[in-house]
């Protein structure tokens, strides 16, 4: 658990972060979103003390972070940055083993941990262990960056626009991988991004920042339903935010379970998003879809009425 109490950071005259309070529960992924220069990275780097906060208190698991020795604190916190920061003169395996080596694990334990992580991040050992960072694609390098951050199995992960430099397809693939990873590992993650779609996809809790302050925080759906200010609304894409909400809800949550009619020929998978279902309706000129499961067996029906959340006429 990470808590910020009225935290302020000044660089000379300039106030980069202005009295923010925030609580990230254990196992929660908290996304900090905002335009460039609003203080997201500064907030993140105060948590691992790469930047010392000027005022307020930051606690990890109830302990003020200033009570820990800097390097000890950082070895307990995974850190992933956009440009990866991999050491170009070290192999992939050596890069991943960095923190365990700092913690003086035995060579055998480091090696088996590195193997484990490479498997977890989909980097076959035979292909990648002895490569150097400049031999990797952007997506592979960022996977190594994540593996390095996870190496000593920290409870907390700080990620600063980790997928910001990747092409859209690779970015989405890595977002999905992060979601799967998080479902298994339950880390406490603070994830900085300026990409609202990314934040909506990944976040349990969404924090919108502007000019060093928190403008609104809540679950993605809470923000989509009730944006507190015009700024948050515009961050959420204005009129587009209905579609963003549709991307967050699955067909399974809105469908009518196996009814008597089921005569619709157009089909959609239960785990598809409402947005995808809407696209199918458009394409098939249908206002009713049959919902299927993994075995292609019909399990329900989704009408346009239900899709938009109007259930009165059913």
């Amino acid at each position: 658990m990470i808590e910020l109490f009225d935290v302020t950071k000044r660089f000379g005259e300039e106030t980069a972060v202005d009295g923010i309070s925030l609580r990230v529960e254990s196992g929660e992924l908290c996304a900090l979103v905002g335009t460039s220069g609003c203080g997201k990275s500064t907030t993140l780097r105060m948590i691992n003390r790469l930047i010392e906060h000027s005022e307020g208190e930051i606690h990890i698991d109830g302990q003020p972070i200033r009570r820990f020795e800097e390097d000890t604190l950082r070895r307990r916190i995974g850190y992933v940055i956009q440009s990866t920061g991999l050491f170009p003169h070290w192999t992939v395996a050596r890069n991943i083993g960095l923190v365990p080596r700092l913690l003086k694990w035995s060579p055998e334990r480091i090696e088996s941990r590195v193997d484990e992580l490479m498997a977890l991040l989909g980097l076959p050992r035979e292909t990648f262990a002895d490569k150097y960072p400049d031999q990797l694609s952007g997506g592979q390098a960022q996977r190594v960056g994540v593996a390095r951050a996870l190496a000593a199995d920290p409870d907390i992960l700080l990620m600063d626009e980790p997928f910001g430099a990747l092409d859209p397809i690779t970015r989405e693939a890595l977002q999905d991988e992060l979601r799967e990873l998080q479902a298994r590992l339950h880390k406490t993650i603070v994830f900085v991004t300026h990409d609202m779609d990314e934040a909506l996809r990944l976040a349990d809790k969404l924090v919108v920042m502007d000019a060093g302050r928190i403008v609104q925080q809540g679950t993605p759906l809470e923000l989509l339903h009730e944006p507190a200010t015009p700024f948050v609304e515009s961050m959420l894409g204005g009129d587009d935010r209905g579609l963003k909400e549709a991307s967050l809800v699955t067909v399974g949550e809105r469908m009518l379970a196996l009814g008597p009619r089921l005569n619709a020929t157009a089909r959609v998978h239960r785990d598809a998003t409402l947005r995808q279902a809407l696209a199918v309706m458009f394409r098939e000129h249908a206002d009713r879809l049959t919902v299927i499961d993994d075995e292609d067996i019909p399990v329900g029906e989704l009408s346009l009425q239900r899709l938009v959340g109007n259930t009165r006429h059913e």
Partner: peptide, 10 residues
């Protein structure tokens, strides 16, 4: 960024 990562890793 390499130095930032190095410090950030502890």
């Amino acid at each position: 960024s390499i130095l930032e990562a190095a410090r950030g890793m502890g």
